[in-house]
Design a binder for these strands. Structure first.
Lengths: 199, 199
DNA sequence: CCTACCGATCGGTAGG
DNA sequence: CCTACCGATCGGTAGG
C-alpha cells in the first residue's frame, strides 16, 4: 500500500516511451515536444519510436485514457461501498491527492494537455470528464440532502476542489517542506472543513 | 464599475493582434498556434503581423507581463489600505475571480502558457509569480497571528485558492447558469468560510 | 500591407 | 532498430 507503484512503467519499451513522453509533455507541453526530442530521451532514433507506437497522438491517447479509467474505476469502488456522502467525498479527494503525488506526470498531462487529442478521442474524453464530475457533484448533493454538507452549488464545489488539487503541481518540486500525508490532511482541512456543518 | 472594460483592446492594430492571440493561445495553446492561423483571424497576411510585433514570443510576453503588472498593482493597493488580514485576503480573491470573468483569455494564457516564455523573460516572470504568492501567504500568516484565521499552512492555502479560482475556466462557457456575483460569493463561502474561525 | 521566399524542423514512411 | 528521406509547415525576412 505504501509502496503502491506508479501506473505501469518501464516493463516494456512502449512503457518506457509512454513514461518519458508523459514527463516531456508535462514539462514542455504536447505541441512543443517533438518526436526527435522524445527519441533522444528514450535512447533510440526518432524513426524507431514507430515500431512501438503508431503516432504522436496515440501516446497522448494512452496517457489520457489510462488516467480516465483509473479515476472511473476508483469512483466505482467508492459508490459500491456504503458510507456517508461526506466520507465518500473525502475518499475521492484523498485519492486525487494521492494520484497527484504518485502519478504526477500522467495526471498533469491528462489534466492539461487533453485538448490536443483528436476526434473521436477528444469528444470521448470530454464526455468521460463531464460524467466523472457529475458523479462527484451527485455525492455532494446527496450530502446536502442528508444535512451532512452545507447547501452550496455542487458544481462550483467540484470545480474548486478538483482544481485546488491539481494545484499540487507547483509543490511537487519542494516536497521536502511537507510530507504527502501532511499535504493531504492540510488540503482536506481547507476544502472539506469549510463544508462540514457542525465543527 | 459595472462596465469596467477588459484590459486594453482593439484601440490599435497591435491591440487587436494581442487580443486575438490571447484567444487562440488559450484555445489551442501557444505552441500549437501558428502565425498564419493568427494572421487569418486578424485579417492580414502572416508577414504583415511583423509590422506590429517583432516575434511570436513577444506577443506572449506582452500578455503575461501585462497581467503580472495588473495583479501586482492591485496587491499594492490592498496592502496600502488598513484593513483586517482576512478582509484583505477576501479582496484579493474577489479581484482574482473578477479578472477570471472579465479578462478570461489573458488571465488563462498568463496562467497556463507562461512556460513558453524565453529567457530572460521566463525567469523574470517566475520570480514575480513567486513573490506575488508570498505576498498572499504573508496576508494569511498575519491573519493567523491575529487569530482571524485558523492555523493552516499558508503556502498550501495560497495554492489551493489560486488554483481553485483558475478553475473558473470550465465555467465561462455556461455562464448563464450562475451570475458572476453568485459565483464569487459561492467561491468565497467555500474557500474563506473554511478558514474563518468562529461562524 | 503584400508577394515571394528562406532555412529549419516537424510527424511520419520506405526499405532493409 | 537504423539510414535515408518525404512533403508539409513552421517563424521570420527581403524588398517593394
Amino acid at each position: 500500500m505504501r509502496m503502491a507503484k506508479a501506473i505501469r512503467k518501464k516493463a516494456s519499451k512502449k512503457g518506457l516511451i509512454l513514461q518519458k513522453a508523459a514527463a516531456m509533455f508535462r514539462q514542455r507541453g504536447f505541441a512543443a515536444t517533438s518526436m526527435r526530442d522524445l527519441a533522444e530521451v528514450v535512447g533510440i532514433e526518432a524513426a524507431s519510436l514507430y515500431n512501438h507506437i503508431s503516432s504522436k497522438n496515440e501516446i497522448l491517447e494512452a496517457i489520457c485514457f489510462e488516467m480516465a479509467n483509473h479515476f472511473n474505476t476508483h469512483m466505482d469502488q467508492i459508490e459500491a461501498t456504503r458510507q456517508s456522502a461526506l466520507s465518500a467525498l473525502e475518499a475521492v479527494l484523498r485519492f486525487h491527492i494521492k494520484q497527484m503525488v504518485d502519478n504526477y506526470e500522467q495526471v498533469y498531462v491528462s489534466d492539461r494537455e487533453w485538448k490536443h487529442l483528436q476526434e473521436p478521442y477528444l469528444s470521448n474524453f470530454q464526455t468521460q470528464r463531464r460524467t466523472y464530475r457529475k458523479r462527484i457533484a451527485h455525492l455532494i448533493d446527496t450530502g446536502i440532502q442528508k444535512k451532512e454538507i452545507l447547501p452550496i452549488d455542487s458544481a462550483t464545489a467540484v470545480l474548486i476542489m478538483l482544481h485546488a488539487i491539481s494545484g499540487i503541481e507547483s509543490w511537487h518540486r519542494s516536497k521536502k517542506r511537507i510530507s504527502a500525508r501532511e499535504l493531504e490532511d492540510n488540503m482536506l482541512t481547507i476544502l472539506v472543513g469549510g463544508l462540514r456543518k457542525n465543527h
